[in-house]
Design a protein around this nucleic acid. Structure first.
Lengths: 217, 217
DNA sequence: ACCTGAACACCGTTCAAGT
DNA sequence: ACCTGAACACCGTTCAAGT
């Protein structure tokens, strides 16, 4: 409408982040982003090689915002826990970005901040330097997998969620006690995959940190 | 070509599984499945409400095949570990089904077998019955998250993988030692998210089992 | 009663042609 | 030098019309 106009990469990322934050984020597309910018989708391919590269850049900003105002506090275990929770929290608001991050990583300024803090915390644990990269790697795998998995469940549409719960109930509550004695016995207490994620997150991280601690020289 | 023909749900699932197993599985679509069956995609909507329901049914068969020939062996920890590895192995061949499973679960005969075996193993641990559902839930979250996350990384296209590695290397190897001392120090030993998944899987499960053990009454 | 063709409302990405 | 329109090659899903 206003004629041609050059968009900076920054403006594009901002608009994308905004679009993803808004309610209908489930159906983000390059075409919708272009429409929000008042241009055609083809113009965006000057700034990004493909949709993944664009989303990775936005995911990195989530990490950046997660680290905003961060101050390390407490012992190494508290620092790792606080860091993991911050990242989880930040992606909890943007579940589809969490999925991108889980698959491709982000590889920008935000991920550098997170990596640095996690490594610094581990260095305080008393682990010898040679053992830190492997422990670091496992912690990253754990944290990323838990956050991306939770986010994936968080973007299920209500109809699909209901379909899933229906089948879950049939499988669990309808289990024949002869063939599935344990399942029948616990049926009423078995929770679906999306339940109690925060508690499970805390506990699974704590277990891994306890494991590291128990193996200190 | 042979004129009209009624497809059983079984035949559809078989063909879908076969299609997903074959090389170009990355781009599975309802239309391609219909083409493989020699019919139109619209016919399939008589058997499934939507694509997710279809894929969930196929994912359940993966669990069924994972449990094929399974015999529990060893103590409870060995049983949990063996079970988790079997499921991981089965989905390793079908990564896009792992993604569906991680998001929606399967809720069929296969998932019932897995739930039963996991609960039976936990019952042998010595945990009191009241504590079993919560521990079970955490283990499921952990196992599902790790398998789905690994599978997600496994379906990245070579070009996208290379793009990601490029940015990863820049972020890690290019870290300024002043601002990122720990990252710069460990740069050469930091691995990408997809590396050493099997070892990380084993170790993260083991940590959780050790945690349960340490909290036995 | 069952199946199908055609359509609807979308995608990501490319590239010749325009200004 | 930059942007755009139009096209390519797809999607999942619905439903009137056919047999």
């Amino acid at each position: 409408m206003t004629g041609r106009r050059r968009w900076s990469t920054e403006e594009i990322l901002d608009t994308a982040a905004q679009l993803l934050r808004s309610g209908d984020a489930e159906s983000f597309s390059v075409r919708k982003l272009a429409a929000a910018l008042g241009t055609d989708s083809s113009s965006l391919y000057r700034h990004f090689r493909n949709k993944t590269e664009l989303l990775r850049a936005v995911a990195d900003r989530i990490l950046l915002s997660a680290m905003d105002g961060y101050r390390p506090e407490g012992d190494w275990k508290q620092r790792v826990t606080a860091l993991a929770l911050r990242v989880r929290e930040a992606f909890g608001q943007q579940p589809q970005l969490a999925a991108v991050w889980g698959r491709y990583g982000s590889g920008g300024a935000g991920s550098r901040l997170v990596m640095e803090e996690l490594l610094q915390a581990l260095r305080l644990s008393g682990l010898p330097d040679e053992e830190i990269p492997a422990r670091y790697h496992r912690l990253v795998i754990l944290i990323v997998a838990l956050i991306a998995s939770e986010a994936g469940i968080g973007t299920i549409s209500p109809e699909e969620y209901e379909q899933g719960m229906e089948q879950f109930r049939v499988a669990v509550l309808g289990a024949d006690p002869e063939r599935f004695p344990a399942l029948a016995h616990f049926a009423r207490d078995i929770r679906p995959l999306g339940a109690d994620r925060r508690a499970a997150f805390d506990e699974l991280i704590a277990a891994q940190l306890a494991r590291i601690e128990s193996q200190l020289p």
